[in-house]
């Protein structure tokens, strides 16, 4: 066990050095989240007029979720690079903990996601987003957002190991994420959707996560409790994320055990 920690810490150190030295990584935690908040807050927000909903409060949970899920691509691309330049071969030939390679990457990428959350909170605050709940429920909201980010990061690692090509990771990642993003309550209330589509969207884990965050942060929400998923977003999001995690992590570890450079 101590081996996993020693090796994991060494590799987290490696990735933290990358943050300063890889421009894309720095951009992904600064410019990207700022742009997202401003784009949704001002541009989309100016066109949104939902009765009973303060959109500047509504959309922030969606932006948090969007940026967390986008972390998937960063992780996947990084894994492809390590795989194709032979670093994975080297790590796998060392007498080190194998899971430490994946833990080092995913934990340090989670740190990137956390930095992005801080940046978004500051910008959101500047344009009028407020948390109305208590300290602990606010913290629980951020915990849930980061949990979503962590699942997405592991998903990205799996995509990278299976596809082994940075461009493929980018485009397939987009194809997977887009329907989840738009068929959710992340940016739009679900009231206008046809009944069957609304049922699908209500069971979307992203809907559950964003609705639960809005509840925890005391932000405007449109979940009126028609159906189980809409009434229990906290339960649905935790169960969905737990299931995804339990499926993705072993698959990623198994892929890593077989991965070699081409």
């Amino acid at each position: 066990m101590s081996e996993v920690i020693v090796d994991g810490v060494a590799l987290i150190g490696r990735h933290i050095k990358h943050i300063r030295r890889v421009p894309q990584k720095l951009l992904s935690v600064t410019v990207m989240p700022v742009t997202m908040v401003l784009a949704f807050g001002y541009i989309l927000g100016s066109a949104m007029d939902v009765p009973g909903v303060e959109y500047r409060e509504y959309f922030m949970a969606g932006v948090f979720a969007q940026v967390m899920v986008a972390g998937m691509t960063t992780t996947g691309v990084g894994v492809c690079e390590d795989l194709n330049n032979g670093l994975v071969d080297r790590f796998r030939s060392l007498p080190m903990s194998r899971s430490a390679v994946l833990i080092g990457r995913t934990v340090s990428d989670l740190l990137l996601s956390a930095i992005a959350c801080v940046v978004m909170s500051v910008v959101g605050f500047a344009i009028g987003w407020r948390i109305h709940g208590g300290f602990w429920s606010a913290l629980a909201g951020f915990g849930l957002v980061l949990l979503l980010g962590f699942v997405a990061i592991w998903g990205g690692a799996l995509l990278g190991l299976v596809l082994r090509n940075a461009e493929a990771v980018g485009s397939l990642g987009f194809v997977i994420v887009m329907p989840f993003m738009f068929l959710s309550s992340a940016f739009i209330p679900l009231d206008g959707l046809p009944g069957w589509l609304r049922a699908v969207a209500q069971w979307n884990p992203l809907t559950a996560v964003t609705d639960q965050c809005r509840r925890l942060w005391g932000n405007s929400t449109t979940a009126h409790g028609d159906g189980f998923a809409a009434a229990h977003p906290g339960l649905v999001s935790l169960v969905a994320l737990a299931v995804l995690f339990v499926v993705i992590v072993p698959a990623t570890v198994r892929s890593f055990g077989k991965a070699t450079a081409r």
Partner: peptide
Amino acid sequence: NIGLAGQYAAVDERLTGLENLRLIGTLYH
């Protein structure tokens, strides 16, 4: 009991030469 040097020159480009070797040293415990 083994060392491997592959055809891809498997070093971390973003780390310095010193950091690369120290990292490998840590991972060999």
